[in-house]
Amino acid sequence: MERSGIFDMSRRGVLAGSAATAAVTTMPRAAQAAPAPAEPATGHVSLTVNGERHDLTLDTRTTLLDALREHLQLTGTKKGCDHGQCGACTVIVDGRRINSCLSLAVMHDGDEVTTIEGLGTPDKLHPMQAAFVKHDGYQCGYCTPGQICSAVATLGEIADDVPSHVTQDLTAKARLTNDELRERMSGNICRCGAYSNIVEAITEVAGEKA
């Protein structure tokens, strides 16, 4: 059996023939949610970012991403979607890459955060940054810091023997191949479409390390 494609008036249907005159009111969530504190709640967090310690008092709602960008003015980490769907906000926390948009700053007390600014500077590029420049592994530049942080951490994950979706033999050690890099970097979207060049940049850095 197949569900019918026409509207009906039952609970499952949502719009009947009277759609044209339907009124829609967007209700504040407060009416539905549990009582919320009137004033924003705050929390204290001590973060070490690129080797420098910061003690911050933040609205509990502040993401790690916004703490970096708005409070520490480290805007190298980008906000592309704020929902974990693009990877532009990738930073390295305690050695692991994460989406900083889907993490509350107050949950990172005592953590060590490395952002793109901590990898290198315009006058002293990290090898991965230099390889991105050499291979033109970017265009607009907005996803680039996330790509680079992700790339640095990806090489670490392969070295740490973390398997991926394209790993053929789960009992063997993780390998560094073009397919592996492409799969592992897939959490970093580049709408400019620099993928082919990015993978070449990473491959070059990986080759130097090997």
Binding site: G76, I116, T121, G141
Partner: peptide, 13 residues
């Protein structure tokens, strides 16, 4: 190579 590359790759653009 792009002359703005060092800014884009370091997050300073």
């Amino acid at each position: 190579p792009r002359i703005d590359g060092k800014y884009k790759t370091t997050g300073t653009a």
